[in-house]
Design a binder for these strands. Structure first.
Lengths: 257, 257
DNA sequence: CGGGGCGTTGACTGAGATCAATTATGGTGG
DNA sequence: CCACCATAATTGATCTCAGTCAACGCCCCG
């Protein structure tokens, strides 16, 4: 397959770090083949040594770890455009699993291709690197949520984050977006019980901030939700809309003072 | 300054991803100058746009975020050999702060140098990238600890992790290593109150697992501590001692099957 | 000798986990 | 179209871990 399916990725990377036409073309030909998965199955499992990176084209996945006592921690959610295991071509052994929450389509990029591309196109390397660094920034923010925010704040914060993530790749409409994530999964992501998630959602509904219905989340009061979750999008490192894109293919990148 | 002080870094990177003599030489000349800090001050502050990366030569630092309501989340601890803000040359704006816990010495690597090096030496880029990916893996593990492990497990887990981190750069002796971290700081790292940290430490002491005295941690029962913390070092991605180092400077890297 | 930071301990309180049902919801086959 | 089943959501009652408040001891340092 060639690049028709990687547009979401291009769009996202481009938003992070503008690439030249040649660089975009390289990326579009990087995907060797496509795979489909049912909902609720593993794409990659802890301990695996994958030979490809996965680019999510459709559906929602989560990154998680299972503890010896059966508890689960979900560490991130992913949507179209995410290379959710970019790290696998550098770290070799997976220290966690990736599972689907809905039926999913992914494109495969062989590790060998990743190696070639990142050696020959430092800008692409830096764009993908940047993407993994933003993932890390999101991990840190989640850590902060779980460690120091109340349940109410945590859930509000998660809603804000996923709204912006989905908006970036065009999956939102007004303030409405798909929400296939169950309450138990929210709990496993935020370190709380499914029961408590349920009660907290009721509160958020009661405050008129959100409506969660038919697997879709409606944000009724964006400002209110942001405040409820102490949400500051800085950690997502989205390029502010008013910042001019760096000349594509240019050789330098200077932080604006 | 030239490379005499960057040996710890070289040692660490080398352990992650063997480099050629030329590559090592490049790294040794990357540091432009050195700075010293007192204990309990910020090296980098949230919102900054640093122009250099910091390589920690001596002392202990932490990565943290302050919340609007005054709560603090510590997201990592760092010791000699850590480039604790490698991300800053790609992400530009700091989304968190770095503070010293003890007096510290750091070497500065200008972002411009980082850009040059990572463009011209893809192996170095990959080594530093790998380092940032391991940081991310540690974030994920902390998230798991905070979200799903009991206080007792969390503290045991933290002790195990820092022991191995320090051991890698030669800061341990038998099972003893410096512990300048206060109970309040442990609490801010693990999402618990200083009082509860105190009580949990008492428990760990009572079980004969550790002794914390004179700012030094003594692990009395390594196997017991690992078990108490459900500690599995896989997420640190340390190269197993028996795995032969890749030929330095070689052009490929193939995951052993 | 006095004060500030850190550690320790006790008593009280509360957010959120656990246990136990009950009620949607959606997909399946008859 | 409906009975059936599994999954998810909801609600109530109870319990517990850990946070908060308050006090005190220790030690270092000026």
């Amino acid at each position: 397959m060639s690049g028709t399916h990687s547009n979401t990725l291009i769009r996202k990377l481009h938003a992070l770090f503008p690439l030249s036409a040649e660089e975009v073309a390289v990326l579009e030909h990087a995907c060797s083949r496509m795979r489909e998965f049912a909902g609720d199955v593993d794409i990659v499992t802890e301990g695996d040594r994958p030979s490809d990176c996965n680019l999510l084209l459709q559906g929602i996945t989560c990154r998680y770890k299972l503890l010896p006592d059966g508890k689960r921690q979900i560490m991130s959610f992913h949507c179209a455009g995410d290379i959710f295991d970019a790290q696998s071509f550098i770290l070799e052994v997976m220290d966690h699993s990736i599972g689907t929450l809905t039926p999913c389509k992914v494109a495969l990029i062989p590790h060998r291709t990743m190696l070639d591309i990142t050696e020959r196109y430092p800008h692409i390397a830096r764009a993908v690197w940047k993407d993994t660094l933003i993932d890390a920034a999101i991990f840190r923010e989640w850590m902060t949520s779980i460690g120091r925010r109340s349940s109410y704040q945590r859930i509000a914060h998660l809603f804000c984050e996923l709204y912006l993530k989905m908006k970036t790749v065009g999956l939102t409409e007004d303030h409405i977006f798909p929400w296939p994530i169950t309450q138990t999964e929210i709990g496993d992501a935020l370190g709380m019980s499914n029961i408590h998630v349920n009660r907290t959602l009721k509160e958020l509904r009661g405050e008129g901030l959100i409506v969660l219905k038919d697997r879709r989340l409606i944000i009724k009061d964006w400002e209110g939700l942001k405040e409820a979750g102490q949400f500051d999008p800085a950690y997502l490192h989205l390029r502010p809309a008013d910042e001019p894109a760096r000349a594509a293919g240019g050789g330098e990148r200077i932080a604006p003072q």
